[in-house]
Simulated assay, not measured.
Amino acid sequence: MLWAAAIYNLAWGALAVLWPRLAFDWAGMEPPNYPSLWQCIGMIVGVYGVGYAIAAYDPVRHWPIVLVGLLGKVLGPIGFLWANRHGELPWIAGLTNVTNDLIWWVPFGLVLWHAWQFSRVNPS
């Protein structure tokens, strides 16, 4: 699952960096005035992919990477809902929350649960 998250984040990040208008064109939204900001977001998402690849080798040891990822995946949809409620983003823009965030909540939560259980049985 962490390998899938790594590949997904690297691919999504690369798309945002290389084609910063693509997601906006697909959603029928006005493209950003500063595409470099969207490209920066793509770079951050891609870096998360590197972190997930590292965590995939030993999820129990690298649980903090998964925790940071889960926090982002929870806060992202909250930020979207705030922006939508204030008229800054249309509902169509929230579709990206499904694949970028929501589908990872349970798997990331399970990794963290496993790491916590492991630490209780095997204290350092």
Results as ranks from 00 to 15, higher is better:
residue 1 M to S: 05
residue 3 W to S: 09
residue 4 A to I: 04
residue 5 A to G: 14
residue 5 A to D: 04
residue 5 A to F: 11
residue 6 A to G: 04
residue 7 I to P: 07
residue 8 Y to F: 12
residue 8 Y to K: 01
residue 11 A to T: 13
residue 12 W to T: 10
residue 12 W to L: 14
residue 14 A to V: 09
residue 15 L to D: 01
residue 17 V to N: 00
residue 18 L to H: 04
residue 19 W to M: 10
residue 20 P to S: 08
residue 21 R to W: 08
residue 21 R to Y: 09
residue 21 R to N: 13
residue 22 L to K: 02
residue 23 A to V: 14
residue 23 A to N: 04
residue 25 D to K: 13
residue 26 W to D: 05
residue 26 W to R: 12
residue 26 W to M: 10
residue 26 W to K: 08
residue 29 M to Y: 06
residue 29 M to W: 07
residue 30 E to M: 05
residue 31 P to L: 08
residue 32 P to W: 05
residue 33 N to C: 00
residue 33 N to M: 02
residue 35 P to E: 10
residue 35 P to T: 13
residue 37 L to E: 06
residue 38 W to Y: 13
residue 40 C to R: 07
residue 40 C to W: 11
residue 41 I to C: 10
residue 44 I to L: 14
residue 44 I to C: 14
residue 45 V to P: 00
residue 45 V to S: 03
residue 45 V to A: 12
residue 47 V to K: 03
residue 48 Y to A: 02
residue 49 G to W: 00
residue 51 G to T: 01
residue 51 G to H: 01
residue 56 A to K: 04
residue 56 A to G: 05
residue 56 A to V: 08
residue 57 Y to V: 12
residue 58 D to W: 05
residue 61 R to I: 00
residue 62 H to T: 00
residue 62 H to E: 05
residue 63 W to Y: 11
residue 65 I to E: 01
residue 65 I to W: 02
residue 66 V to N: 00
residue 66 V to L: 07
residue 67 L to R: 09
residue 68 V to A: 15
residue 68 V to M: 15
residue 68 V to D: 13
residue 69 G to K: 00
residue 71 L to H: 13
residue 72 G to Y: 06
residue 73 K to S: 11
residue 73 K to I: 01
residue 74 V to K: 02
residue 77 P to M: 03
residue 77 P to T: 02
residue 78 I to F: 13
residue 78 I to V: 15
residue 79 G to K: 05
residue 83 A to L: 14
residue 83 A to V: 09
residue 84 N to K: 06
residue 84 N to C: 08
residue 87 G to W: 11
residue 88 E to F: 15
residue 89 L to E: 11
residue 90 P to L: 08
residue 90 P to M: 12
residue 90 P to F: 14
residue 92 I to F: 01
residue 93 A to E: 08
residue 97 N to I: 01
residue 99 T to D: 01
residue 100 N to Y: 06
residue 101 D to G: 05
residue 102 L to G: 06
residue 103 I to P: 00
residue 103 I to D: 01
residue 104 W to S: 10
residue 104 W to L: 10
residue 105 W to Q: 08
residue 106 V to M: 05
residue 108 F to H: 05
residue 110 L to Y: 07
residue 111 V to H: 07
residue 112 L to D: 04
residue 114 H to D: 05
residue 116 W to T: 07
residue 117 Q to R: 10
residue 118 F to H: 13
residue 119 S to K: 07
residue 120 R to I: 06
residue 120 R to L: 15
residue 121 V to I: 13
residue 122 N to Q: 07
residue 123 P to V: 12
